[in-house]
Design a binder for these strands. Sequence first.
RNA 1: GGAGAGAUGGCUGAGUGGUUUAAGGCGCACGCCUGGAAAGCGUGAGUAGGCUAAUACCCUACCUGGGGUUCGAAUCCCUAUCUCUCCGCCA
Length: 433
Amino acid sequence: MLDIKLLRDQADHVRQRLATRGAGDEKFVDEVLALDDQRRKAVKEVEDLKAERNRSSKEIGALMGQKKLAEAEAAKVRVREIGDKITALDKQVAEVEASRDAILMRLPNLPHASVALGKDAADNPTIRTWGEKPTHAFKPKNHVELCQSLKLIDFERGTKLSGSGFLLYTGWGAKLERALISFLLDLHSTEHAYHEVSPPYIVGEHCMVGVGQFPKFRDQAYAVQEGNDASTMGKLYLLPTAEAPVANIHRDELLAESQLPVRYVAYSPCFRAEAGAAGLGTRGMIRVHQFDKVELIKIVKPEDGYAELETLVGNAEKVLQLLGLHYKVINLCTGDMGFASAKTYDIEVWAPGQNQYLEVSSCSNCEDFQSRRMNLRYKRESDGQNILPHILNGSGTALARLFVALVETHQQADGSILIPEPLQPYLKAERIA
RNA sequence: GGAGAGAUGGCUGAGUGGUUUAAGGCGCACGCCUGGAAAGCGUGAGUAGGCUAAUACCCUACCUGGGGUUCGAAUCCCUAUCUCUCCGCCA
């Protein structure tokens, strides 16, 4: 959520930055400001009335103490009228405030000044590349063929169980998935000093609101219901990313400055309805309803936010370097950025069998956009002020696509997969054949 | 799932309709004291909104959330959530 004070003080700036996203949200700024103005006028009025009621009620108490009952009764009648006005005005304030916040909650974050202007993915500048596209002395197979020939995934039976977009990992496929998860958790918790956590996979609505998934992207989530009790429907949701629970760990807390920076790493499966998304229904692992991911979350002082974003991307890149996978880092342009983010780097890994780059990580600084939504602050030591920290998230990394890049890159002419050396202790094998 | 008891500030803990401006204690910050500490003594300190040049004053709200009764609610009523105890079920 954007700071209402920023909209009041720098409306033109907010409009201009929102416009760079190309979604037309800038037109809502005036609407928010009008409602805000309306709210403040009503608040002033009702608070003055409340002050008067408080004074009068005290006087009534004193009159009753002195047994001046007739005077007290007369005063009660007067104050009751004030009370009726207050009731009506309170309701009005609540309504106006709800209208204002409903719009505010749907406004995306402002892109950071360093983000490239652009319309869509075609305008995303490449920041750097690592390694090169591997050259195979044979025509590389795609992951679907490899998974079938090595029996890593049973696509048909996955679909039989849960419909299209769900995977049944089998044998070495299941072991490889498990090995990757352990490898990633160990790398980030040991080498990169993230604190490992394992969150619930079902979260309350307030967590989804906190990270900015709701209210705007409600249709992308799987809602949960307890048995046939329809009243429980939508109180809880399957998480679309571990960001939802982990970024909310300290919601409604006032942290000490000495607690920062907070860095968490968590594994979770991710569930996405992918309503209306292209690529679902086709066989493969590129776009599915459930995939595994190891997520990195940071809560840091605002002045450290952007330096921390750079190291976050570096931590995710390290995964691909250790696994010997060619990738490029791109910066999402203003028109392609996610709702809550002020600046995002995507990491795209090369998949030879697909002959394309696949997005395996998205690293963002959401600045104080989420901390304001979830009421997370820290007390600054120098002046005792309560400050909204920056919250960052990054995939470190998503697994289904990492799996694809790994098997396609390290496939051999005989159809086997060579396992990169850092992963061998986890899989307890050097080759899948 | 059933029965009962609870939720008060950073922590603890009093308060059952109007001297509560939420006592007392612990902890915290500052000062006095000290060679330096501890102890002791003193002072101060919450969050959000409104009004403001102001992080000054003043006003409003906040005792888990929501709703109600009342001139007036931490206190009475309803409700949701969570915690604890016991019973049942269960990996």
